[in-house]
Structure formats: structure tokens, C-alpha cells
């Protein structure tokens, strides 16, 4: 199994109150699958995604992603692991505003021992894939929301990680741009064999996925 969650619980302390957005959740995901994660606001979707991406750790339970038990890794080790295995796509793109599209896409590659020429080749390939080669020198503020999200996708895939997680990637986009993004994600699964977990509120968006999971109050309620 590519992702194995066993009994994972995540709780936060807020003052003397304990919030538990994920409650003993068990879930397996196959390599090369496209999964949509749905559920009402506050049901723990983002929390689960953050655990899978290794930017947060579960309070208890076993979590294995891409063959690594990531609950055992230190902060630095987790960083190195993310650089190899994870592409994160945010709802609000989170491009670095002072860097051009090209420089944004290049960011993950700076952590790899590549020659400048090899880096250039990979950035160009990634930008090509999202059809934005002609916008390489533009800054995020000079791009539309859809284009920004495509740059963000290029940044997520440039280091060729096996797992992409996306938190409402089309939540801030108009219908046409959203459709293009969803097609792009589908293509990444079909053509490059990526595994994608995507949070969405939109049933139409979820329809491009192979599998739709419903979360409610930190628990899996349905699996289609």
C-alpha cells in the first residue's frame, strides 16, 4: 500500500479545551490513485492532508507514506523526506510574491544536487506541462488566479514526488480555470502515475477522482 493510516488521532490543545479533528482514522490508498476528500467545514480534511504531507504529526497511530513511517522522523528528516516525496498544492497558491514564476518553480530543486543546466531543463519541462512557458519571467501579481495555480502545480511536480496533495485547489477559481486545473491533475495521474489526494467542497470537482471519501467529525463516513 502506498499510504497506510492506522488508528491515527490528531488533537490540539486550545487553552484547557482539547479539540480532536481526527479520531482513530484508518485508511489505505493505492499508488497511482486519485482520491477526493469531502466533508463539511471543520471535519478534519486539511488536518488529514497535512498529516499525509508530513507537515504535521499525528498525536497517535501509525502513518506510513511511500514506504516510510513518517511518525518516527525528526523535523529536519521530515523536511528532507518532503523534498523527495511530496508536492503540496494550496487553495491560495502560496507562490512567493517576490519571485518570478520560473524562480518559484525552481525552489524545490535548489535542495537537490543538480547542475544549473539540469535544473533549468526540469523547470522548463514543468512549466511546459502546465502550459506556462511563456509566463516564466512574470511575477505572481502579473498572473491570473488560474495561471498562479498552474505555476503552483508546476512547483509541486518539478522535483518529481510520487504523492501530490491539494487542499481545495479550485476553491478560489472560476469554473473554466477550475476545469483546466482538474484536467491537469487527472493528466498527472494518468500520464505520470502520480498519487493525488485532493480536498474539495465541489461535487463536480470530486467527480474527476477515482475514489471519494467523506469525512465527518474526524471520521470516515463513506467511501465511494
Amino acid at each position: 500500500m502506498f499510504i497506510t493510516c492506522q488508528n491515527i488521532t490528531k488533537s490540539f490543545k486550545k487553552g484547557d479545551q482539547i479539540i480532536t479533528p481526527l479520531q482513530a482514522l484508518t485508511l489505505d490508498l493505492e499508488k497511482g490513485s486519485f482520491t477526493a476528500l469531502m466533508g463539511p467545514s471543520g471535519s478534519g480534511k486539511t488536518t488529514l492532508l497535512n498529516l499525509l504531507a508530513g507537515i504535521d504529526s499525528p498525536s497517535s497511530g501509525r502513518l506510513e507514506v511511500a514506504g516510510t513511517d513518517i511518525t518516527r522522523l525528526s523535523r529536519s528528516q521530515l523536511g528532507a523526506w518532503r523534498a523527495q516525496n511530496i508536492g503540496y498544492i494550496f487553495q491560495l497558491y502560496h507562490l512567493v510574491p517576490v519571485l518570478t514564476a520560473y524562480e518559484n518553480v525552481e525552489l524545490p530543486l535548489l535542495l537537490q544536487p543538480l547542475s544549473a543546466a539540469e535544473r533549468h531543463k526540469r523547470v522548463c519541462t514543468a512549466l511546459d506541462l502546465v502550459a506556462l512557458s511563456d509566463r516564466a519571467e512574470h511575477f505572481p501579481r502579473q498572473l491570473s488566479g488560474g495561471q498562479e495555480q498552474r505555476v503552483a502545480i508546476a512547483r509541486a511536480i518539478v522535483a518529481d514526488p510520487p504523492l501530490l496533495v491539494a487542499d481545495e485547489p479550485t476553491g478560489d477559481l472560476d469554473a473554466a480555470s477550475a476545469k483546466a486545473i482538474l484536467q491537469l491533475l487527472r493528466q498527472l495521474v494518468n500520464d505520470l502515475g502520480k498519487t493525488i489526494v485532493m480536498v474539495t467542497h465541489d461535487a463536480k470537482a470530486a467527480a474527476v477522482a477515482d475514489r471519494i471519501l467523506h469525512l465527518e467529525k474526524g471520521q470516515l463516513v463513506s467511501d465511494i
Binding site: 504531507a53 529536519s76 523536511g79 528532507a80 523526506w81 518532503r82 523527495q84 511530496i86 525552489l107 535542495l111
Partner: peptide
């Protein structure tokens, strides 16, 4: 704060 969080999400380590 946000920039650094994004960099760390991309795999930048605290040392970086």
C-alpha cells in the same frame, strides 16, 4: 512567516 512555512512545506529544513 508564510513564505518560510511554504518553503518548509516544499522540503526546506529548519537549518536552511
Amino acid at each position: 512567516v508564510k513564505l518560510n512555512a511554504v518553503l518548509m512545506t516544499l522540503g526546506y529544513q529548519p537549518g536552511h
